[in-house]
Design a protein around this nucleic acid. Structure first.
Lengths: 105, 105
DNA sequence: TAATAACTTAGCGAAATCGCTAAACGTCAT
DNA sequence: ATGACGTTTAGCGATTTCGCTAAGTTATTA
């Protein structure tokens, strides 16, 4: 999990964060997880997510981990479930901002 | 190279195009190539690009090929040089549009 | 306390990715 | 024709990624 606050000041960390985000977005399953998360209100349990995907639960679990390491989702353990929440703001300020360079001028 | 016109109608091709684009954006060197291309007016020769990067020329050449297959750049052979041009519009209508889902609502 | 539910971690094999060097290719100048 | 230039293709080894199954781990339920 990337510390967003730290990344915002240190350009080196900022680049690493951008890289993790784009790497996370490189796999269709991970993009779909973010979509599902978004259209279901922003949060879901691991099982709720895994149940919607064709691949095995452990595989989905690892995708979730990568999303978490990129900072695109956060997790909270509640009882024996884990709740994943999307961080839409990060998406905008990393990948979104990078893309915006090509719109300007 | 992905046929953009075809991709715009067929949802399956559209998804494949999106996937190629995000895969292309997953590598920092390829993102930088697009940046350099953009800030130098949108077009450059292969050598002009390769000269700005630390990695070997063949490696850069392969990155360019991936960008081309994603449709993010186009090539034109002129004499013994090859001119690469960025397609900013594609960037916006694939990755950009995907990201915009998370801004709406 | 034993079983079950909800997940993650470990570990494996196949395939993709990335960097390099060496070789090939088409074009231009001599 | 010969050689040099600009660039891509071929091919290799190292690393990463992705899917799976099996084996944990922690929290509830019986």
């Amino acid at each position: 999990m990337a510390d967003a606050k730290a990344a915002r000041r240190d350009p080196r960390r900022e680049l690493e964060e951008l890289d993790r985000v784009f790497k996370a977005l490189a796999h269709p399953a991970r993009r779909q997880i973010l979509m599902v998360l978004h259209f279901r209100g922003g949060e879901m349990t691991a099982g709720g997510i895994a149940g919607r995907f064709a691949c095995s639960w452990p595989t989905t679990s690892r995708h979730l981990k990568q999303l978490e390491q990129a900072g695109l989702v956060t997790v909270e353990s509640v009882g024996r479930e884990r709740i994943y929440r999307i961080d839409k703001a990060l998406l905008g300020r990393t990948a979104g901002e990078w893309l915006r360079w090509f719109e300007k001028v």
